[in-house]
């Protein structure tokens, strides 16, 4: 585990910097996310943890410039010379894919039901990486394989795959574009233990060369992946720091509650295993 000082020396210039980001409901002005700042460096990973409704997903979407029009954004998200929060749609879109990659929680709605999985890969890899069909197919197969899927899912339609398989297809599709920043919003929710483990290992391998932001309500997943932690509660950052330090001495009641819940759920398993109870 690297400490906070190594973070500053590891990647030199930050890849992405969010400054005092806020999100409000356009109609009422109600704040949903307020005053959150974070920095992502190459070779480093940041975990965002919080209850449902704490603003984790909205924060992710704002980093990619993907907020729905019913919401307004404040602050800045600096990536590759643009402010993703206020950039023109085309400029923001140009930076997604090979620059910023998003792994969504809901894979079911991420695919066009009228096109095969292969069509999704071919279009994305052609448009974003300029790959012709044969090269795109090879790359798709390689990344599907890394998520534990056989190449024959390329011929499947979205409705023919389970939620867990679709989620892995989406992970393979996003990662095949080789984004420099990976924003992963609960990427393992639909997975059984073995596939969750595989995806965590895959992301852990990729973070060496990229920046990773991992969002989860499960501290065990975040601990396995994140060098640093940011705890979100009711749209605000209530605690942040190196993962080991935050877990060893949680300051905020919300952090303590999340930690205790994870420990309570694991306790019978650990007792049986003969490890720490």
């Amino acid at each position: 585990m690297m400490d906070d000082t190594s973070q500053k020396t590891a990647g030199a210039a930050p890849l992405l910097e969010a400054r005092r980001v806020g999100v409000r409901v356009r109609a009422t002005g109600e704040p949903l996310v307020a005053d959150v700042s974070l920095t992502l460096y190459r070779g480093r990973s940041l975990g965002i943890v919080g209850d449902s409704g704490s603003g984790k997903t909205l924060l992710c979407r704002s980093l990619l410039g993907l907020l729905p029009s019913s919401l307004t954004a404040e602050g800045q998200v600096l990536f590759d010379g643009a402010d993703m929060l206020h950039a023109e749609a085309a400029e923001a879109r140009h930076r997604r894919g090979t620059g910023l990659g998003l792994l969504l929680q809901q894979a079911m709605t991420a695919f066009d039901p009228l096109r095969t999985i292969e069509a999704h890969f071919l279009e994305s890899l052609r448009e974003k990486c300029g790959l012709a069909a044969a090269g795109a197919r090879r790359k798709a197969e390689a990344y599907l394989n890394r998520t534990g899927l056989a190449a024959d899912v390329l011929h499947a339609w979205p409705h023919q795959l389970s939620g867990g398989m679709l989620q892995r297809c989406m992970i393979a599709l996003t990662l095949s574009l080789e984004p420099s920043v990976i924003v992963a919003d609960e990427p393992t929710t639909a997975q059984d233990a073995c596939h969750q483990f595989r995806i965590v290992r895959l992301l852990a391998g990729l973070r060496q060369e990229r920046a990773l932001l991992i969002v989860s309500h499960d501290l065990a997943v975040v601990q396995a992946l994140a060098d640093d932690l940011l705890i979100l509660h009711e749209g605000r950052c209530v605690e942040s720091g190196p993962t080991a330090a935050v877990l060893a001495a949680p300051q905020h009641a919300c952090t303590r509650r999340l930690l205790e819940a994870r420990q309570a759920l694991s306790r019978p398993f650990l007792q049986l295993r003969g490890g720490r109870a």
């Binding site: 233990a193 969750q196 065990a220």
Partner: peptide, 26 residues
């Protein structure tokens, strides 16, 4: 029975146990 979970030698069950993510000591 639950108490015998870690005594099984079935490879698939052992795989599942090995893949289970728990909080590590910190």
């Amino acid at each position: 029975p639950r108490e015998e979970l870690f005594k099984t030698d079935n490879p698939h069950v052992r795989d599942l146990l090995a893949c289970t993510l728990v909080l590590k000591d910190f």
